[in-house]
Computed example of a mutant assay.
Amino acid sequence: MKLLSASSNRTLAQAIADHLDTPLAQGEFKRFKDNEIFVEIQENVRGEDVFVIQSTSYPANDHLMELLIGIDALRRASARRITAVIPYYGYGRQDRKVGGRTPITAKLVANMIVTAGADRVLTLELHAGQIQGFFDIPTDNLFSTPVLERDIRHKHKNVSDLMIISPDVGGVVRARALANRLGADLAIVDKRRPKAGVSEVMNIIGDVEGRHCIMIDDIVDSGGTLCNAADALLEEKAASVSAYITHGVLSNGAVKRIQASSLTELVVTDSIDPDTRKDKGGTKIRAISIAQLMGEAIKRIANEESVSSLFE
């Protein structure tokens, strides 16, 4: 097999390559003066099983076009099989119609990836499980749960003091999966807006008094929900509040907001390269690597082995 990295997260791609003891394939992703993207595969890939690693994070459109053009270049170079490895699937939050005359852009992006020539897709923690069905090719959606669990156990020796928190009702399944692995209790933040333009009112479902609360979610963007939820948990006499989020988008002043919040710590994975985010820095923000998880999944796909057994 061959690994090819586009430009969105070369650090993660190199870490995956190191884990697999496989060098990254030579390829050039550059821009012309009018910002058109040009891709050249600089080594023979004929008959090869090629994995293209690219998060479609900020700037999402540029990184998406790099992925599509890279796939097309590989297809025209006669690669035997092309797998799009997308640690962060941009546009994933547009997975359904939210009103009249609105798009389902997650499906549109899936169509584009298939049309470009991808034979299969490997992603991490899709915003909604049904996005797997948007692809008409095999799609493996990994979960960051094992990576988060390992870090939490390292940080918290006494798991009995922990309370896993879902910051909204929609994330209960994700939070419960981690709580079950840790043997910890689960609580839910129920948020609602009384009317448009009025601040969220939050109710805590579960007894968090004296517990070290860890919020679990797939994406942190502006950080507003996390910060408000942390305040609500502390009002209910939680001992501390931290958060583990898979994809650290962190835009629109999120880093400053997190830094000034009552959160003890925000832990994100390196599915998005911190250097490509709009907001950077923050002493409360820490990144953990998914390279081993992604690398193991890539190896299993290449060897035609089970991927789902990674989470058993």
Rank of each mutant, 00 (worst) to 15 (best):
R181S: 10
V121T: 12
S309Y: 09
E305Y: 04
Q26M: 12
T105E: 04
V198R: 01
E304F: 08
R192I: 10
V85T: 05
D136R: 13
S7N: 14
E43L: 03
L67H: 03
R96W: 10
V109R: 05
I53F: 00
D190Q: 12
A106N: 05
T139V: 04
Q26P: 00
T283V: 12
T102M: 13
V52K: 00
K2F: 11
N158Y: 10
A177K: 15
D185E: 15
K237N: 14
G183Q: 05
D275C: 12
K237W: 00
G223M: 01
A13G: 07
A187N: 11
R192L: 10
V208T: 01
N9L: 09
L12R: 02
A79K: 04
L234Q: 14
E236L: 03
R192Q: 13
I69S: 02
S261H: 04
V109F: 02
G99C: 11
I113Q: 06
N228H: 13
L293G: 07
G170A: 14
N252I: 10
I219L: 04
L234F: 01
T123R: 03
M1A: 04
G70S: 14
I214K: 07
E209F: 00
Y244N: 01
L108T: 14
I16W: 02
R192K: 11
L122F: 02
G210E: 08
D270L: 07
Q259L: 06
I86E: 04
L148W: 03
D168K: 00
H19F: 15
